[in-house]
Design a protein around this nucleic acid. Structure first.
Length: 175
DNA sequence: TAAAAGATCCGCT
DNA sequence: GCGGATCTTTTAA
């Protein structure tokens, strides 16, 4: 699922971004997954069926995930970077003055800031029932360009190559 | 009730 | 590359 989400469009109101970096997290055998030790108040959304939005806060920023498993299994894909596609003026407004185009949303906290996502949106349905926030696609296939690597900023299960990136340098050649 | 850890970011060097 | 900011959840006493 983490690879399949690359190239998809994350839509929140007028703002749209194409997903270019993801990380997978799974309850089973993945110690760095929030759901590894079972359900808590924070991670409850991870145990819903796939298609829901899981948002949590870390340090001073929010991180946005897509729930991926069947109900009862805690699992999600962290969206780590998007390519801004629409609503770019509004994204600039939400980010610090002088932020470059690339830096608008090239990190988990940054893209939440650019898209205006916070913990209040945890549990939203991304599959189309909510006209404000959803995930769409245009049929683009990034599978040949995906690079796998260890996940960023974690201390456990660092051997898993569950981070998937479409390098920023490739993007101009895709249009 | 308290303390520590954490899927980050930014500025400085 | 490094450290600090700064806040919520979780866990232990």
């Amino acid at each position: 699922m983490a690879q399949a989400l690359l190239g998809k469009y994350l839509v929140h109101g007028p703002c749209v971004g194409q997903i270019i970096e993801t990380e997978a997290y799974h309850q089973q055998g993945d110690e760095s997954c929030h759901a590894y030790r079972g359900m808590t108040k924070r991670n409850a959304t991870m145990f819903q069926r796939g298609g829901y939005l899981y948002v949590y806060r870390i340090h001073q920023v929010h991180c946005l995930n897509v729930v991926t498993e069947t109900a009862g299994i805690g699992s999600a894909v962290l969206i780590r970077a998007i390519r801004p596609v629409a609503g770019i003026a509004l994204m600039h407004q939400r980010r610090p003055p002088g932020t470059s185009f690339k830096q608008l949303a090239n990190g988990p906290g940054k893209l939440c800031q650019a898209l205006g996502i916070d913990r209040a949106m945890d549990g939203c349905d991304l599959t189309g029932s909510d006209p404000l926030i959803w995930i769409g696609e245009d049929g683009s296939d990034f599978s040949a360009l995906i690079q796998a690597s260890p996940r960023i900023g974690i201390r456990k299960a660092t051997d898993l190559l569950w981070r998937f990136v479409v390098p920023w340098e490739y993007l101009p050649y895709l249009q």
